[in-house]
Design a protein around this nucleic acid. Structure first.
Length: 618
RNA sequence: GGCGUUGUAGCUCAGUUGGUUAGAGCGCCGCCCUGUCACGGCGGAGGUCGAGGGUUCGAGCCCCUUCAACGUCGCCA
């Protein structure tokens, strides 16, 4: 008896899961499926009314489902069906049956995959009426985003969202397949964990059973995946939700998804290799393009050549150092910069920039100022010679040196930014991106990956002056750096790496500390007392003392990867139910007040009076 | 939290130096139409010009306050 029950269970499951089109009842088809070869067959279609074209005596409806669009035709001879056909309106749900037939010669629609055929309806059922939608589901015009978010279920019907979520699915599926092939285990880690107040702010969840205490939602599964390594699991991956209670930014959600990876007994090269292999696999399989090998740049080199630690390598226009050209210059503003250490004068080639008007250069200068520049010097190389506001201070040799350093030709301009090194790099880096945009060099169809390596282990907080970690406190120093712990920690380099695509940081990773004494030393340098280390990370420090393997890994932002792959400017376009820029869910209206009784149960009392809604007062 | 942009019909938008009854396209409603596919034709309904206050004989337009969306900076293992 148990056997037969088990068998029947399995057979039900199997039959549902394997209902591929060919095995469904003969006439049930999707709206993207029918072709000329199906002419003559009977078919049943279900879907939404996409468009209607009512000719009085003949009604054409485009029916849409997840798979595509098929034209169906209602003729007056079919009395009952025709009455339904005439009554159909946008977004009504309809189920129809009839004969598939080739369209009359000359009326095929080459823009539809199903455009050679149509369904002649003889049986129709109005399954669901729709109110007139607040915005059109057809077409791809931009709709006010708050409307789209409020009626997300309608927005999701639109072609772009269907496409984007499909691409996202394929990306995540490819990631899982890749890591499965490489013998990784997908392991779920808990969402209710301990608050470890470093880095970002935690979301807290009050405990009913333990009044006055809180769980935290994970900012990332960092410690848990390291403990998986200590637990001997070898190779871990997870498509993980992460939660960070930071202030809203355009490209940020309070909860987001990471591809989280950790491996034991590996060095930096092995992690880079496996992660690069993953992205190349995903791009090959989902986008059918083969990205070139990822160049590796040191952090210092990226700042020097591109003015950014996440350089956009889709185009050149690299930063050129021209400090030396101004050592003897009469242009005192720049000559002074040469007289003390720590300054940069960066030259940027602006192809075709010599044709810009004075007014346009003024506007560009304003842009530079918005990046933090004190000013912007431009030098134009024209047929009539060199033109520049500082022309009278520019010797022929200096102009020549600028052209040589940047590769500027006649017709180009050179932009000059002089400042303290870090600021000059930053400003010039942003100007470079501005030029890339103006010249159309940042196509969403191009993909330029790279690695940034050789980060410092620590940096100085610009406000407090305190030493803080550059990545996170579990990052291992590079080999041989440990002797600097007590003498010059800011000079220590870390086994930390970033993956960058098209100017976006996709994520970062590191080799972790597996020796408890090194981990303790780092916590101490960050200013944690022994007591604080025990309270916050005691369980972790203890775990490290039971034979921790060397390990390392990485986390990549899935939302951002999907965004770039889809060519979208915003991660909200690749998330089914995103929150708006104020982190509100406009469909559900969250966050919202809760009934007082619910707070009482949690031993909570709000210090802010919120206008109670109907739901909040019950 | 700072700064910027936007807010006019269901949607996307126009609206002149402040001037009489606020417009267009699409959508919606009605009638006509048997080969359309952004169908077509005729007719119609639909507006607290985001909200509040002010200046003015008169405000969609000018001023102040405020709300919202979006962008941007601060912030963000």
């Amino acid at each position: 008896m148990p056997d037969s029950r088990g068998t029947s269970c399995i057979s039900i499951t199997t039959s549902v899961e394997s209902r591929r089109p060919s095995e469904r009842p003969m006439h049930k088809r999707s709206c993207g499926e029918l072709r000329a070869v199906d002419a003559g067959a009977r078919a049943e279609l279900s879907g939404w009314v996409h468009r209607r074209r009512d000719h009085g005596g003949l009604v054409f409806i485009d029916v849409r489902d997840h798979d595509g669009i098929t034209q169906i035709v209602f003729a007056p001879q079919e009395l009952q069906a025709f009455a339904i056909g005439e009554s159909l309106r946008s977004e009504d749900v309809v189920r129809v049956r009839g004969a598939v037939r080739r369209r009359p010669a000359g009326t095929e629609n080459p823009r539809l995959p199903t455009g050679e055929i149509e369904l002649a309806v003889d049986e129709a059922e109005l399954v669901s009426r729709s109110l007139t939608p607040p915005f059109p589901i057809t077409g791809d015009e931009d709709i006010d985003e708050s409307l789209r978010l409020r009626y997300r279920y309608l927005d999701l019907r639109r072609h772009k969202m269907q496409r984007n979520l499909r691409i996202r699915h394929r990306i995540v599926k490819a990631m899982r397949d890749y890591f499965d092939d490489h013998h990784f285990l997908e392991i779920e880690t808990p969402d209710l964990i301990k608050s470890t107040p470093e880095g970002a702010r935690d979301y807290l969840v009050p405990s009913r059973l333990h009044p006055g205490t809180f769980y935290a939602l994970p900012q990332s599964p960092q410690i848990l995946k390291q403990i998986c390594m200590i637990g001997g699991l070898g190779r871990y991956m997870q498509i993980a939700r992460c939660f960070r209670d930071e202030d809203p930014r355009a490209d940020r959600q309070p909860e987001f998804t990471q591809l989280d990876v950790e491996m034991s007994f590996v060095d930096e090269d092995e992690v880079l290799e496996i992660m690069e292999g993953c992205m190349r696999f995903v791009w090959r399989r989902v986008l059918e393009v083969e990205p070139p090998a990822f160049p590796r740049l040191s952090h210092a080199e990226a700042m020097r050549r591109f003015g950014s630690d996440k350089p956009d390598l889709r185009f050149g226009l690299e930063l050129a150092d021209v400090l030396d050209a101004f050592r003897e210059s009469e242009f005192t503003l720049f000559r002074r910069l040469t007289e003390e250490d720590g300054h940069r004068i960066v030259a940027l080639r602006y192809p075709g920039g010599a044709s810009l008007s004075r007014r346009e250069f003024d506007a560009l200068t304003e842009t530079a100022k918005s990046f933090g520049a004190l000013g912007l010097v431009h030098v134009s190389f024209t047929n009539d010679g060199v033109r520049s506001p500082i022309a009278k201070f520019l010797s022929a040799e200096t102009a020549q040196a600028l052209a040589h350093a940047t590769g500027a030709q006649t017709g180009d301009a050179v932009l000059l930014v002089g400042d303290a090194s870090a600021r000059a790099s930053d400003i010039a880096g942003k100007l470079r991106l501005e030029l890339g945009d103006r010249l159309g060099l940042r196509s969403t169809a191009d993909f330029a990956f790279c690695w940034i390596v050789g980060f410092p282990l620590f940096e100085r907080d610009p406000e407090s002056g305190a030493i803080t970690f550059a990545h996170h406190p579990f990052t291992s120093p590079a080999p041989g750096q440990e002797r600097l712990f007590d003498t010059d920690p800011l000079a220590m380099r870390a086994l930390h790496y970033d993956m960058v695509l098209n100017g976006y940081e996709l994520g970062s990773g590191s080799i972790r500390n597996h020796r408890p004494e090194v981990q303790r030393k780092i916590f101490q340098l960050l200013g944690l007392s022994q007591l604080e280390i025990d309270e916050r990370f005691g369980f972790f420090m203890e775990a490290l003392q039971y034979g921790a393997p060397p390990h390392g890994g990485m986390a990549l932002g899935v939302d951002r990867i999907a965004m770039i792959a889809c060519g979208e400017p915003n991660i909200r376009e690749v998330i089914a139910f995103p929150k708006n820029q104020a982190f509100r869910d406009m469909m559900m209206d969250a966050p919202s007040p809760v009934p007082k009784g619910q707070l009482d149960e949690l031993s909570l009392r709000s210090t802010t009076a919120v206008q109670a809604t109907a739901a909040g007062t019950t």
